[in-house]
């Protein structure tokens, strides 16, 4: 599976639109695109998970690295539109307490079952 990383520069923030799967194969590309954004002081980076169907624990590693980088470089990062299964991964690992995550779940509405 592939992962598409699309970076969109908004007025006051960078929006990183992801689509596809985040796993050991696609994680390096995500890291390459995401980390530079967190290295600039004052940058606000919003990561849109709306089209991410799957993420494994390798993906968590990327976001931990990014979080550390935001702290070192005084930038900030927020994750939005996570699917339930992916949100669960952040909850179990306790990372939801230290990473800014918008917990409004989308999900079932995709199948029109809401």
């Amino acid at each position: 599976m592939n992962l598409n990383v699309n970076i969109h520069e908004d007025i006051d923030k960078f929006i990183v639109n992801l689509s596809g799967e985040i796993d050991a194969y696609t994680a390096p590309e995500l890291k390459e695109n995401l980390l530079p954004l967190t290295k600039q002081a004052g940058n606000v980076v919003e990561i849109n998970f709306e089209n991410v169907e799957y993420m494994d624990s390798t993906g968590l590693g990327i976001f931990v690295s990014a979080l550390k980088s935001t702290k070192e470089n005084k930038s900030s990062m927020k994750l939005v539109n996570l699917q339930e299964r992916i949100l669960r991964l952040f909850r179990i690992t306790g990372l939801d307490k230290i990473i800014d995550i918008d917990t409004t779940i989308r999900g079932e509405s995709v199948n029109g079952k809401l």
Binding site: L60, V64, I92, T93, G94, L95, K97, I98
Partner: peptide, 10 residues
């Protein structure tokens, strides 16, 4: 019931 941060982050 479990709660706790993964090892090696903070």
């Amino acid at each position: 019931e479990t709660e706790g941060l993964i090892l090696g982050v903070l």
